[in-house]
């Protein structure tokens, strides 16, 4: 579900939605979601000063309430 949420948001923001990849793993009780995108799209999921990334994190954190800790990494 959290993975799907990140996928949905990221795909709507980029030029190459088919190249968006999201993985989910459990590290020390924290759900770690890693998002990767086409190299021309990385900026579109991070934004100036990470503004877009922060917004994605805010929505993800809200959606993960009662589901434990969550972290979002963006691979470059």
């Amino acid at each position: 579900m959290q993975k799907e949420l990140v996928l949905t948001i990221a795909r709507a923001l980029v030029d190459y939605p088919e190249e968006i990849n999201v993985t989910e793993e459990e590290v020390d009780g924290v759900t770690v979601i890693t998002l990767s995108a086409h190299k021309d799209d990385v900026g579109k999921v991070i934004g100036k000063n990470g503004k877009i990334a922060s917004a994605i994190r805010a929505v993800l954190t809200a959606a993960s309430k009662d589901r434990g800790k969550i972290r979002l990494n963006i691979a470059d």
Binding site: L13, K51, I52, A55, I56, A58, V59, T61, A62
Partner: peptide, 24 residues
Amino acid sequence: GMVIGKRGQTLEALQYLTNLVANR
């Protein structure tokens, strides 16, 4: 409350992302 968040933070984030999508 879940989509509003503390001091409306989540709502702001949702609004920001939706505006980005709309104006693409």
